[in-house]
Write a protein that binds this DNA or RNA. Structure first.
Lengths: 129, 129
DNA sequence: CCCCGGTACTCAGTCTTGCTATCTACTGCT
DNA sequence: AGCAGTAGATAGCAAGACTGAGTACCGGGG
């Protein structure tokens, strides 16, 4: 996938991570690994950590430091009540978008190639102030 | 909808406009009006014009100036071959996202509260830096 | 012994994109 | 003349994702 995905991820990635944390608590490295596993190959590590810090600062998650056998201690994130509320709101917005997009896709698919050549060519005065 | 939608629109709005133009050519004001009609109440006018200028400069659309009976001339945008390709790519990315999100939503809905305690519980020392 | 690779997290700087606010310009109504 | 509606352009800001580098801790190979 190209960089198209990069822009589409904005806002959506937060919802994805909240949804992951709704299933069970997790730490950054784990989430990153899971995302790569799922095919989100182009998500940078730094992005996930930055996102986790953001949602922590907005009070959507609780954090515990857990010592790891190898490497520095993990920061384990747990979705709290506010986080669940935020996730619910995310699903609402997502549904709205998904519904409208699905509608547009349907309309596009059965008529993507018509050439209605009724263009009256009186537009030849291409003058911009 | 709050500002949650604002971030989620990034990247998606371009796809929406391309999809609209795939159905029939249109000009900015028309597109803005249609979006408002569809419930995208919070999309600013300037945003649509800026987006149209961007996709024009990337060569995804052809433009004609058409004099209007009331007001200044309209800039009518038509999706060209490159634009159709871009739109196809958009649908690919969108489907990928939608599939994974749908999966996560399902997983969340039937088990938002289970504690799979497969993590050896040596994490009970709630130390926050 | 030191460096390398894997684990785990942090941070500064850049780019894209949407929003706000303002401006131009043309038409018709009051 | 002034105002509302139509139509578009633009400058400056904010948020989020990326790049790239850095810190820290562990174990194994040269």
């Amino acid at each position: 996938m190209g960089k198209q995905a990069t822009e589409m991820l904005k806002g959506v990635l937060e919802g994805i991570v909240l949804a992951i944390l709704a299933r069970r608590r997790a730490y950054g490295y784990e989430i990153t690994a899971w995302l790569r596993d799922q095919g989100f190959a182009d998500i940078a590590e730094g992005t996930v950590y930055a996102l986790l810090i953001r949602i922590e600062q907005r009070g959507l998650v609780d954090v515990q430091k857990v010592p790891s056998e190898k490497g520095p201690p993990r920061k384990v994130y747990t979705l709290n009540e506010q986080g669940h509320a935020q996730l619910a709101e995310f699903w609402t917005t997502w549904s709205f978008l998904a519904d409208h997009l699905e509608q547009l896709r349907g309309a596009d698919e059965h008529g993507a190639d018509e050439h209605s050549d009724d263009r009256h060519s009186d537009d030849t005065q291409g003058e911009k102030r």
